[in-house]
Amino acid sequence: MRALSLNEIAATVGKAARGGGLSWGIAEETGSAARWLAARGLFAPAAFAEVLEERARLSPPLSRGEFAPRAGFAALCPLCLGALLCDCAEDIAAGDAAAMANNVAQPLLAAAFLHPAARTLKTGFALSWRGGGVVVFASSATVRGDVFADFAGTVRISVIPPPLSPPIKDGGGDCCLKDGDGRDAGSPGWRRLIKLAAKTMVPSTKQSRVRGAGAGLTDND
């Protein structure tokens, strides 16, 4: 197996997110979240593909005060939730009580969006759900139980002081990828992401090949 590079993962997942209909801004953060996960052995391409292919069934959070899906939606989009959590990280860090999100698809993906906030606020963010959870630090993570859960009815969000001796990975849970190795360029999940990313590209015409790329003069010299 030839491993995917982190840069390929960030670029392709970012494009796939855009191809899946997200705004450029959230797409960039989706790419960054995937990269962060991949660097920690936690990247499951199928999880991203699942969310992006099913975007129509997933809702952004209701409001800044209520991390729950809008009426008529089965679950929260973890990418929209992740972006909002990162935006609200100061509030979360300031409040003593844990924040909570309801009906979250692929909660690990939402958690990964918090790594820039963990960096600027120099703290860790813990997301936990029934049977699993993850603590996100700027450049490390601790995982517990079923970290790759497809869905969580309730996700609790709290602040954890940074570890004294990072980086650490894995708090003793069984952390194994369900999509084979997440950095395998041949995995089915990765192929689904490539397909989504292709939706951002414009099919070539003879005109675009000549004009758009800017030839027109002889190439040889």
């Binding site: 705004s23 450029w24 801004g25 959230i26 953060e29 952004p60 409001s63 800044r64 929209c80 972006a83």
Partner: peptide, 10 residues
């Protein structure tokens, strides 16, 4: 940005 995510990049 929750209301208008299209401006997040900017």
């Amino acid at each position: 940005l929750l209301a208008q995510p299209q401006h997040r990049h900017s």
